[in-house]
């Protein structure tokens, strides 16, 4: 009868043999002293490994691990941050004030400053002149005009914003800005070590 080979012995102990192979192995082991001895050696090794105790950890690793974690993961969800909320409100208020003012100016100013650049043919002609310069000393700059419209008087705003209301809005905006920045500074993740 064939002895059990190394694979069979190992797989038998690991309980990886199918039923038929296991029964065959057991039958052989029952009658073969040599294979039983080899199996016993392996079993002794298995129990030596199983009995190896864990050794105690001398230091708590928690602090060291936490100190090495990436910082940005500590910042909570954006919309839950007071700074984000405050500064969003601030932006909305400033836009509410700013857009009407800008629109009014845009509509009331009839002509924007205009700059008239010379035509390409004009530039070409002057370039030809420039080539002839060494023969004739005639050179003229192309026409270049810059028109500034007369400034209109300060327009009326389309919405009635009393100076007192403006002042209140600005105070609110400033307060929001302050609170927002303050909370942003406070929510900075602490340094752990």
């Amino acid at each position: 009868m064939n002895h059990l080979n190394e694979n069979q012995l190992n797989e038998y102990l690991d309980q990886m043999l199918d039923d038929a192979s296991r029964q065959q192995a057991e039958t052989h082991l029952a009658s073969c002293k040599q294979c039983r001895a080899e199996l016993a050696d392996l079993e002794m090794l298995f129990s030596s490994l199983a009995e190896l105790p864990e050794i105690p950890l001398k230091h708590d690793l928690k602090a060291g691990v936490l100190a090495r974690l990436p910082r940005e993961m500590q910042i909570p969800v954006l919309w839950r941050q007071p700074a984000f909320v405050m500064q969003s409100l601030l932006t909305i208020i400033l836009l509410a004030i700013g857009i009407p003012i800008f629109e009014t100016f845009r509509q009331r100013i009839p002509t924007m400053p205009t700059i008239t650049l010379p035509s390409y043919s004009g530039i070409a002609a002057e370039f030809v002149n420039l080539l002839a310069w060494q023969f004739e000393f005639t050179f003229t700059m192309p026409e270049f005009t810059f028109t500034i419209p007369t400034m209109p008087t300060l327009p009326h705003l389309p919405i009635s914003l009393e100076p007192s209301i403006m002042l209140v809005l600005l105070l609110v905006a400033t307060t929001l800005w302050g609170i927002g920045n303050f909370s942003l500074l406070r929510s900075k993740p602490e340094v752990r070590g």
Binding site: L61, K62, V65, L66, L69, M73, Q74
Partner: peptide, 8 residues
């Protein structure tokens, strides 16, 4: 990270 510290 506090939860992770407990897991550690």
């Amino acid at each position: 990270q506090n939860a992770f510290g407990e897991l550690v």
